[in-house]
Design a protein around this nucleic acid. Structure first.
Length: 373
DNA sequence: TTCATACGGGGCCAATGAAG
DNA sequence: CTTCATTGGCCCCGTATGAA
């Protein structure tokens, strides 16, 4: 399981593959929780689907409450949340659960951005380097440029697919998943809660190119036996390979075949305790790239508690190419709107620059019910 | 006073995504 | 295809601070 990151003074460990953290799973409330979730299950719904639906509903209630006059949303702050596209409001469409990678070999890839936050600027050969206490991570763009947070949606889909398949497998309800995964393009767009215009379908292929080309290289130095320093270097892409099947008459991409990179596959399928985190479905509706990064950070660092990171550190870990002050400005806009799913954001003055406090909204957990408001 | 520097807000723009 | 709104990044300027 994850090691404690030094920036994260009071953050809990990464949460397990289900909604509940390892602590929750051990606690006595687990049974009551399972009962309550099952009680509100709709016909034909899996346990995970019910969990996600309850979470989403609770979050909507929270947001409504926060929007009240004495709530935390300042009037006039623009929302950071995109409106869902048409057709999306069908209940739960088909996304049973949304998962993201928590860590790789105890080294968090979630704390740094393995992609560009910006939609443009996809220069080839670009490198972002993150220096970490015990080594560094380098993200290198391939010939088609670096993958963006939006391209990463496809990776999220792959991770979610593998996790769901593994959950079924563990309950002896399905096959062990293989490394390749064959979604229809419209499934990808629907999963990412986007519209399905023709241009967006074309974009999927370009996104796959960037994902394939973008490699992550981690270099870790640690003390080996005998006090000798060991250096470990690994490099792999965000996806291993892909194939696009298109209809030649219309030149339209119809379905794609994506092979998961080893590090993701091994972590989820062969790991004993896969370190994946559930992600709120409204993640896809967070428009600013910085907002998405902050949500991922909060999800990973704060978990169900609170985390405190300096603006400067977040800026460095985000790989943003802009100036620090611009990053701060965008970050403050996100804080002002305070409409990220599940987390409340707050700014605090620190000794060396501003700090961001990310707090889990207690009411958002389906564990708590009926109290307050 | 003047000059230099740092910081943050406001305005702007090419690129993007959504919708028609 | 077209049109429109929004984005992150870039540039400029006002303010604060301090030394000479």
């Amino acid at each position: 399981m994850g090691e404690v990151m030094e920036d994260n003074q009071n953050g809990p460990k990464p949460v397990g593959h289900a909604l509940l953290s390892a602590l929750d799973r051990l606690s006595a409330s687990r049974e009551a929780y399972v009962k309550r979730v099952e009680a509100s299950a709709l016909p034909g719904e899996t346990f995970e689907q019910t969990e996600m639906r309850l979470r989403r509903e609770q979050d909507q209630r929270d947001r409504a409450r926060a929007a009240m006059p004495n709530g935390s949303i300042k009037p006039g702050s623009p929302s950071m949340i995109r409106k869902p596209p048409k057709g999306d409001e069908q209940p739960d469409f088909f996304v049973p659960g949304l998962y993201d990678m928590g860590s790789r070999d105890n080294r968090s890839v979630m704390d740094v951005a393995v992609f560009r936050l910006s939609k443009r600027e996809k220069r080839a050969g670009e490198v972002i380097r993150y220096d970490l206490p015990d080594g560094y991570v380098e993200v290198k763009a391939g010939p088609d440029g670096m993958a963006s947070v939006w391209d990463y949606d496809i990776v999220l889909m792959m991770v979610s697919h593998l996790t769901e398949a593994m959950n079924r497998y563990k309950e002896a309800k399905g096959e062990k998943p293989g490394r390749t995964f064959r979604p229809h393009v419209s499934d990808i767009l629907k999963f990412a809660r986007r519209g399905d215009g023709s241009r967006q379908i074309e974009e999927v292929e370009a996104a796959l190119d960037r994902l394939k080309g973008t490699t992550i290289k981690t270099v870790r130095e640690k003390m080996g036996p005998g006090g000798r320093k060991q250096r470990m270097v690994e490099a792999e892409g965000l996806i291993s390979s892909y194939r696009v099947l298109s209809r030649t008459d219309t030149n339209r991409v119809s379905s794609v075949e994506i092979e998961a990179p080893k590090w993701i596959y091994q972590e989820i399928v062969e790991g004993k305790q896969p370190d994946v985190l559930t992600v709120h479905p409204d993640y896809f509706l967070i428009e600013p790239g910085i907002g998405r990064f902050v949500y991922r950070l909060a999800r990973r660092a704060a978990g169900k508690g609170e985390a405190k990171w300096s603006f400067r550190t977040i800026y460095e870990r985000s790989g943003s190419t802009g100036q620090f002050k611009d990053f701060s400005r965008h970050l403050r806009k996100i804080i002002a709107s305070n409409d990220l799913p599940e987390y409340d954001l707050r700014e605090e003055r620190g000794q060396s620059g501003p700090l961001l406090i990310m707090t889990y909204r207690n009411g958002a957990a389906p564990l708590e019910s009926g109290q307050g408001g």
